[in-house]
Each structure stands twice: as C-alpha cells, then as structure tokens.
Design a protein around this nucleic acid. Structure first.
Length: 419
RNA sequence: GUGGCUGUAGCUCAAUGGUAGAGCUCCGGUUUGUGGUACCGGCUGUUGCGGGUUCGAGCCCCGUCAGCCACCCCA
C-alpha cells in the first residue's frame, strides 16, 4: 500500500523539517502582532462556489456528498473560511484584525515538484483596514518570513501589481467591470499565448493587444506609490518589483496583488496574495462589509527552495541539530544498578531533559554508539562508582565524576544543549 | 486535463533476450566499563501491476498504475 498520489507520509525526519517551517511561520506572524486561528478542514462546497470566491480553484476541488447528503469539499484554501469566521464574529474583535493560520489544504491537480494534493499552507490576513499601510504590513511580513529562512534579495523577489490599475484601464476603454475577471484572465496568460490567439480572445473587448502591452510596459502603477514608499521606509524596497503582468488567478482580489517567486531555478510562485475588499461582504450577504488583505505560502515549494539555497539549507540544518531526539543518554555499565538508572532517568525527565537508556543489557561501547546516534550531547555512566556517576561530554570526550544527586544541577549549569 | 521520460532490495543504481548483482542503510560480531572511522558476517526482491511475442523477457510490444519534467495553473 502506498499513499495516494499527491499525499505524503511524514516520517520523523520529515516532521522535524515541518516543525522548522511552522516554527518560523508562527514566530514571524507573532512579531507582526498576528494571532493564530483555525477552521474546519471540511466545508460546505457552497462556500467556494459563492460569487467571487472561486476562480480556477473550483476545478481542483475535492468535492463529494457526505452521508447526510450534503455537498462538501476539503478546503483548497483558508481565505473563504477566514472570511466567514470574521464576518460572523468581527464585532468581538478590535480592528484591524490580524489573524494567521497554519493548516492543511487540498487541491485535486496533477502532482509535480513543489505541488501536491495535500499541503500545509501558512496564511496571514489583515482585516478591517483598506489603506496601503495595511498592504505594506502584510507584504513586509511576507518578506521577513522568507528572510527568516535565510533567503535574501538574490534569492527571491515580490512582484507587485494592482487590479485597480486594470480597472481604470478598462474604464478608459469603455469595458464594463462585470467582464473584468475574464479580461484579466487573458492578460494573465498573454505572454505565453500566441499573438493571434490573444487577439481573438480580446476581440469582444475591442482593445488591441498592442495597447495592453504598451500599458504593461510603462511599468507605472501610481496606486502602488504609497505602498512602495512604506516599504522603502522599512528598508525592504529592494525586495519588491512593480509588475502589471501579475494578475493572479483567484477571482476575489480587488486591489493590490502580489506574488513571491524564486529568482533562480524554475520553481513556481512561493507565495501569493492580495487585497480582497468585497469577499467578506459577499460571503456574509452584506452583514460584514470589511476590507481585507492577505497571502498564503505553501510548505512544499518552500521546502524545495530551502534545499536549493545553501544558506537556507544550513540554517535549517543548524535548527535540526539543535533539536536532537535525546540530550542525555544513561549508560548502564552494570546491570545491578539498573534501578538506580531508572530513578535517575525519571528525575531528569521530570525536570525536562530528553533522556534515554538501553531497555536491555548492552555492552558499554554499543551504548555510547547509541548515545551518539540519537544526538545526545552527554552520556552518564552508571555503574560501580554509584552513588557517583560519570558524566561525559560526547563532543570532546571530557569526563567528570560526580554525585548522582547533583547531576541535574550540573547539567543545568553546564548545559546539555548541543555545542 | 494534454504531451514527453522513467519504473530492479528500505535507499542509490548495475545486469550483449539466457540461473537477478553491488554500494549504502539496518541487524549481529571483532572475547565481556567508553564512541559515528576499520574489518568479518547476516536479512530483504513475485524486476510497479496485467497481458502479449519468444524455446526463454528485468530487457522487446500493448495496456494500466505511479513518479519526474514540460504545458495549464497555483502554495
């Protein structure tokens, strides 16, 4: 039996990496004053079908009928859930609301490197502030997040755009905004599609492709100026690049949209997000009309990226080394002292040390090897010297004999943490 | 959903159509209270699965499933 395609088993070494990821996700979000929330993994499929909430994602929905005849879906993203939760209870929270989530999402699509059917996503959303100051806060958070993994300006960049610029463009050319989504979809794919094909698709809009290309190539997005000034003040300007070509697939974005992408290799977008000022109103039938901006990062792409960037890889490695399975290993040199070893192990464990010892009689040499393998920084030999024991620092083989009763204090002072 | 490439031991990979191998990992040992190196030994396969061609298929053909890559799109 294997896992289903696009799903994965997380062995302890995989889970350690996940802990590293989620730890930094949470730390960064908290530094920006965000608090963690979560919602159901399974939702009514209707949540994703409601006007404006879907886009291309609908075709990737894990959707089925449950035993109560309800049409349900595994969440492909958490933004709709967030929107519903905020809309239903936002009066209980001061604005703006800063919430983040670390949760599993599902999308039924062809598996590929950095793209799975079940993945962990980090989501940050700021609700209740429509200014570019809020946009900047979220973009800055994303930049700091990627930096915390050891990634620098040579490794990634944030492409910034603004859908309002396109809306103005459409107004100028007399196109109704009802068709904006359709139009932006064409723009999104323009650079990859044959010229003639694009012309054909654009025909109903009456806008020549050349006009669009000219608009993009000006590179001017006045709506982004306050955001760029804000990031400049934070010293983060170097990470962002205005680019009208970024449109994003999700239908509910209304203003600024952005995506983080790797500058080397051919990884896809690392993270993506934007402003969705109408989603809450749409999902709550107007009960909560709150502007919002947010982004999502997937674990799969990030893990691949870390593997490719040496600085990021070594940062991860030092974390993993700091989290060994064991800190202290009790070497039972004389079986007649096993009960003393058990008492000592218990005492150390209660005070918080990660302690191991052989479950059966084993040669001393092998026990040291086990201590080594499991990452313990110290071995404690329990045998003929009792009530004294020998503490040995494995890194430099320094050994010291002391009364077992003082061992916990000794470890506290000398630190069993890795060197 | 479309196209291309690949599928052999837990992992990485060998094997002119002729009896399936190596390295690593893992386990045990190198005479019994001190260490990831060294040496010795041991375990594991219906060659992804199902058909077909052939005296004979890991190898050739078809199908299927899975993985990788490129589209599509996205985290």
């Amino acid at each position: 039996m294997k896992t289903l395609p696009g799903f994965r088993d997380l062995f302890p070494e995989d889970f350690a990496r996940r802990r590293y990821l989620t730890g930094l996700w949470r730390d960064t979000a908290r530094r920006y004053g965000f608090v963690e929330f979560d919602g159901p993994t399974l939702e009514s499929a209707e949540l994703y079908r409601k006007k404006n909430s879907g886009g291309e994602i609908l075709g990737q929905l894990y959707e089925f009928t449950d035993k109560g005849d309800r049409t349900v879906a595994l969440r492909p993203e958490v933004t709709p859930t967030l929107a519903r939760m905020v809309a239903s209870k936002h009066r209980d929270y001061p604005k703006p609301i800063r919430w983040f989530n670390v949760g599993t999402c599902f999308r039924y699509e062809r598996q590929q490197r950095g793209r799975l059917r079940e993945f962990l996503q980090f989501n940050c959303d700021l609700v209740g502030d429509a200014t570019s100051a809020a946009d900047a806060e979220v973009v800055a958070l994303l930049i700091d997040l990627l930096r915390s993994f050891g990634l620098g300006p040579e490794d990634f960049a944030i492409r910034l755009s603004d859908r309002s610029a396109w809306h103005d463009f459409l107004t100028l050319h007399g196109v109704e905004h009802d068709h904006a989504g359709e139009f932006l979809n064409i723009v999104d794919k323009m650079e990859k599609m044959p010229f003639e094909k694009t012309e054909e698709l654009l025909a109903p809009f009456g806008i020549p492709q050349a006009t669009i290309q000219e608009f993009i190539s000006t590179g001017r997005i006045p709506a982004l100026d306050p955001l760029l000034a804000d990031l400049e003040a934070r010293g983060l300007r170097a990470y962002v690049r205005p680019d009208l070509g970024v449109v994003r697939g999700l239908a509910y974005y209304t203003g600024v949209v952005f995506e983080a992408f790797a500058l080397q290799g051919n990884l896809r977008a690392i993270a993506g997000g934007g402003r969705y000022d109408r989603l809450l109103a749409d999902l709550s039938d107007g009960l909560a009309d709150l502007p919002a901006v947010g982004f999502g990062v997937g674990d799969a792409v990030l893990l691949e990226l870390i593997n490719e960037i040496p600085a990021a890889k070594s940062l991860e490695a030092s974390y993993l080394k700091s989290e060994p399975p064991l800190q202290v290993y009790l070497v039972i040199a004389d079986e007649s002292h096993r009960s003393n070893a058990l008492a000592l192990a218990q005492q150390l464990r209660v005070t918080g040390w990660r302690v191991g010892f052989p479950l059966g009689q084993e040669k001393v040499g092998k026990q040291f090897g086990t201590a080594e393998t499991l990452g313990a920084s110290h071995a404690v030999v329990i045998g003929a010297e009792w009530p004294n024991v020998k503490v040995k620092r494995l890194s430099d083989r320094m050994e010291q004999e002391l009364d077992h009763a003082t061992l916990a204090i000794w470890l506290e002072e000398h630190g069993a943490a890795v060197s």
